[in-house]
Structures are given as structure tokens and as C-alpha cells.
Design a protein around this nucleic acid. Structure first.
Length: 471
RNA sequence: GGCGGCGUAGCCGAGUGGUUCAGGCAGGGGCCUGCAAAGCCUUGUACAGGGGUUCGAAUCCCCUCGCCGCCUCCA
């Protein structure tokens, strides 16, 4: 099975044929840890988590690398404002990052390189670019000469002269071209710095990802990903450097679209962002994953209180199916998506429906059409409920297990509570109500239901008696 | 100025040149239920506007309007 993905470099959908059969190497630009992450960061993390899981589902071994930029102008600025070290700032916000990732159910990358761990390799690379004539020195550091790369502009889909014509700022007269970017920034007084042949300083942002991706995954790795705004100039600049270094770079480029608010890009600078921690403290984290899955990864995605509560309702529907399924079945052990990637083979072994899996894959293979795949999952859920209603338990369970397995493949977990886990007082009310109902004392039963509802429960009657779920 | 994207029913959001309105949420009707809840069934005459191509277009082409993004740090 081969997945097709839209490639930002060619502008077309391409078969992802890995450089080594059965092994996929993927590098995704991670966050700069200078502040709390917002929903936009959450989206890219989820998109690539889902892509990764799907490739594992197909049976490929994925090596997933995503970096942490832990040295950068913004980190330094913040550290100076708060009178602490850049490392403290970076540590703090990296911790926030990972705890948000855990809540979202994003599995850890296989490798998490930090920029500061690669400074000396970056210095080597910059030296090589200087030696080969791709870089030049001016008063505040070393710059890459974009004119030296004939293909520059591939990812921007623009020619060099057009790009130059559109350049908005001319902040540095010494640069040969406005498009040239810093490889090495000389340290000003009080700034953190590392030694180099060009004096104390720090690497420019665009160098770390080339050095780390090539260093860990090697030449010609399969997929390079990130948010759409990284395509230019960040990824363009990475590419330019790889050419200068004479190394073959990423075979495919994948970029995800924005989270929007009222049609506008969610961004720090616009102040229209919701931080992940705020979101996660108010809403079911799975709702965000569902929102991400429900829109195509390259489309803009609108997040509003209403879309979020819609998503929560949808999740509940699946939760209830899973509860229904577990009531009739002993199978309660599914792999935890946080640590395990389920494969199609596993799925078949667990009794999932071949047709259901095939339809799922058909959508996913088509440029990660998660909305289509998800529609199929809900369709299966409907059929499962139908079969349960009809008493066709065997069919129902096969359908339900398919839903379960596909959702696991997408990184979802379910609320597995059987609706009977609550405090003693509540338990007593439930028992009394069941007794009242058995005695056909409807008045008493209704009083008890009202009481339970007052306590925040949604009350359901099932063949197994009163069931509760939270509101 | 250059390049690119978007505009789909109450809301979100896919999709495709042509029988059955992807799916979710919300709403109407029904079945089930002691009543509910959940579930199931059923119900929507959507594709910014205007031209054109076609036997047939929301889907292709042209124009107009509106919105947004990238070209600077940015997921």
C-alpha cells in the first residue's frame, strides 16, 4: 500500500516511495520554546502524529524526528526581560510543550534534537559553506548568499527576482541581497554565545534543521514537514544550504494549513490565539484531535466554541458505542495509542472488518483524507449500533472493534468507564432506582432520576439497569 | 507589485462533470421506552455572483465581488 501526499515542491500529489523499503524517515520542524504553545502548534503536532501513525498502520517502520529550537532571538529577549538565563526560559516552555503534547495524545518523536546540542556541527557546516563560497562575512555575522543557488525559490514557487522585488524590509545594507539570511550571528554583550572561527555567537535558525535532519536521518530522507508558513523562507533556506553542502535533502515536502479565527490566521502577533493549556483545561483533548481530523490537513481550520462542542458531542457518540460494545464483550484490552502504534495486521487479528479497513486506507492514502476516513468510521459506528439494536451481536462486535481499532490508529482513546464508577451515595441512588423500577414504582424512579440529574449525571436505562454518564 | 488559497445547506466540513444531498452537530417527524436518555429510521431541494464550454457543471474556462495567506519572525 502506498500513501499519496501533496508535495509542496512539485505542487502535485506524489507516491511516497521511501528510500528504503518499509522504512520511512520524517523530519518535522518543532517549536521554538519562548512562550506557551497555541492551537496552531497543536495542529501541526497532531497532523504529523496522525501521518506517522498511519504509516505505521500500513506496516512501515517510521523514524520520526522533530526538533526543539532552544536558542533564538525571542528566547534571549524574554530571558533578558525576566532576568534569567535563556536556558531557563527554554526549559520552562519545553516542559509546557510536552505536557500539552501528552494531553493531546501526541506520541513522542523517536528523536528530539535540541539546537544547542548541535552548535559545533553547525559551525562545521557553516565553515564549509564559507569555504565553498556560498557564504560571506559582514559586520554582524555570516550570511548565506541566496544568489549562489540557481534553484532558489522552488518552494516559494517564485523566481529569485520576483522574491527580491517583494522583499518588504531592508534592515541590513551590508547584505548582498535582501533575501540572504544569517548563518551565524555575532553575540552582543550579555548574549549567550558559542565559539566559532568568526567569533563568539550563535547559529541562525535556518541552519539547525539542515544539520540535525541530515545528521540523524542521513541524506535523501523521505519527508520534511511543518506548518505552511515554514515553506518559505525557512524550508527554502534549508534546501539552499543542503545544496551548498552538496547533500541530497528531503524527497518530499509536506505542509499543513492554519488554524483560523474568524477567517484570520491564528497568531501570537494578532493576539487572537488560544493557548493549548487553556483549551485543554476547558475541553476534551480528544475534541481537538477530532477537529484536526475533520478538516483536511492543508485546509484552514476554524476553531470556535461551537465547533469544539460539536466535536465533543461526536466523541461522546463513539464513547457510547464503545461502552455498549464492552458491555457485551470481554475484550477490553486495546493497545494504548500513547505508546503503541497499531498496525493493519493487528487490526485484522483483532477481528476488524476487512472492508472497513480498506475503505479507511483508501481515504488515508489519498493525501491523508482524514475527513473521508472519519466519515467511514462514523458510518461503521452507525452500522454497529444498528446491529446491536437488531440483536446481531456478532456483527455488531465486529463493527465495533473495527471502529475501536481505526480510532486507535488515529490516536484516539475512549472513555472506558462502564458507567458504574462513582461514590457510595450515588451508587446507592442508582441501586434504589433500579429497585424502584423493578417494582414498577415509576414515581419513585423518576424522583431518583431527578436527584441524579441534579448531581450532574445523564441517566440512561439499559438492559443492565441504570447507567450514568457525566454531563 | 509577485505568488498562492478560499467562498458548499442553521453551523462545522469533505467531495465530485451525470442515479440515493460524505460525515458530524443542531432542527422536524417516526420507531423503541412506563416516561426519558441512548440508539435506529426518516426529513434539508447547498455549492459567492455573472457569463461561457457541454446533452449535462457546485465540479472545466473567463470575468466580477468578498475574504485570507506567503514574499519579515511565525506551526
Amino acid at each position: 500500500m502506498v500513501i499519496n501526499l501533496y508535495d509542496s515542491a512539485t505542487g502535485k500529489q506524489e507516491n511516497i516511495v521511501p528510500r528504503r523499503l518499509g522504512e520511512i524517515s520524517m523530519y518535522v520542524c518543532g517549536p521554538t520554546v519562548y512562550d506557551v504553545p497555541h492551537l496552531g502548534h497543536g495542529r501541526f503536532a497532531l497532523v504529523f502524529d496522525i501521518l506517522r501513525r498511519y504509516m505505521e498502520f500500513l506496516g512501515d517502520r517510521v523514524r520520526y524526528v522533530s526538533n526543539i529550537t532552544d536558542i533564538d532571538d525571542k528566547i534571549i529577549t524574554r530571558a533578558q526581560q525576566e532576568g534569567r538565563s535563556y536556558a531557563e526560559v527554554a526549559r520552562e516552555f519545553e516542559d509546557v510543550w510536552w505536557s500539552a503534547m501528552d494531553s493531546l495524545g501526541v506520541a513522542r518523536p523517536d528523536d528530539i534534537p535540541h539546537a544547542t546540542e548541535y552548535v559545533s556541527l553547525m559551525v562545521d557546516a557553516i565553515g564549509e559553506m564559507v569555504d565553498k563560497g556560498y557564504a560571506y562575512e559582514i559586520s554582524d555575522g555570516i550570511y548565506f548568499s541566496t544568489d549562489s543557488i540557481s534553484e532558489y525559490g522552488l518552494l516559494a514557487h517564485q523566481r529569485l527576482d520576483k522574491l527580491r522585488a517583494g522583499a518588504r524590509v531592508e534592515e541590513n545594507d551590508e547584505k548582498r541581497s535582501q533575501l540572504d539570511f544569517a548563518l551565524w550571528k555575532r553575540a552582543k554583550v550579555g548574549e549567550p554565545s558559542w565559539p566559532s572561527p568568526w567569533g563568539e555567537g550563535r547559529p541562525g535558525w535556518h541552519t539547525e534543521c539542515v544539520v540535525m535532519s541530515l545528521g540523524i536521518l542521513g541524506e535523501g530522507f523521505d519527508i520534511h514537514g511543518g506548518g505552511a508558513d515554514l515553506a518559505f523562507p525557512h524550508h527554502e533556506n534549508e534546501r539552499a544550504q543542503s545544496i551548498a553542502l552538496g547533500k541530497s535533502f528531503a524527497r518530499h515536502w509536506v505542509h499543513n494549513g492554519w488554524v483560523t479565527v474568524g477567517g484570520e490566521k491564528m497568531a501570537k502577533s494578532l493576539g487572537n490565539y488560544t493557548s493549548l493549556s487553556d483549551f485543554l483545561s476547558r475541553s476534551d483533548p480528544r475534541a481537538y484531535r477530532l477537529l484536526v481530523l475533520r478538516s483536511h490537513y492543508r485546509s484552514p481550520m476554524e476553531v470556535t466554541p461551537r465547533t469544539v462542542s460539536d466535536a465533543e458531542e461526536s466523541i461522546t457518540r463513539l464513547d457510547l458505542l464503545m461502552r455498549r460494545y464492552r458491555v457485551t464483550s470481554d475484550v477490553a484490552t486495546f493497545p494504548d495509542p500513547a505508546t503503541t502504534f497499531i498496525t493493519m495486521e493487528d487490526a485484522l487479528q483483532m477481528g476488524a472488518s476487512r472492508d472497513g479497513l480498506d475503505e479507511f486506507c483508501q481515504h488515508m492514502d489519498d493525501d491523508l483524507d482524514t475527513p473521508g476516513a472519519l466519515a467511514g468510521v462514523f458510518e461503521l459506528a452507525r452500522k454497529a449500533n444498528s446491529a446491536f439494536d437488531a440483536g446481531a451481536t456478532e456483527d455488531a462486535e465486529r463493527l465495533a472493534v473495527t471502529v475501536q481499532v481505526l480510532c486507535n490508529a488515529l490516536g484516539f482513546t475512549f472513555d472506558a468507564t462502564d458507567g458504574k464508577e462513582f461514590d457510595e451515595e450515588t451508587r446507592k441512588l442508582v441501586q434504589e432506582r433500579d429497585a424502584a423500577r423493578a417494582a414498577r414504582d415509576w414515581q419513585r424512579a423518576d424522583v431518583l432520576r431527578d436527584e441524579l440529574m441534579r448531581r450532574g449525571w445523564i441517566v440512561e436505562d439499559t438492559p443492565n439497569g441504570t447507567m450514568l454518564r457525566g454531563r
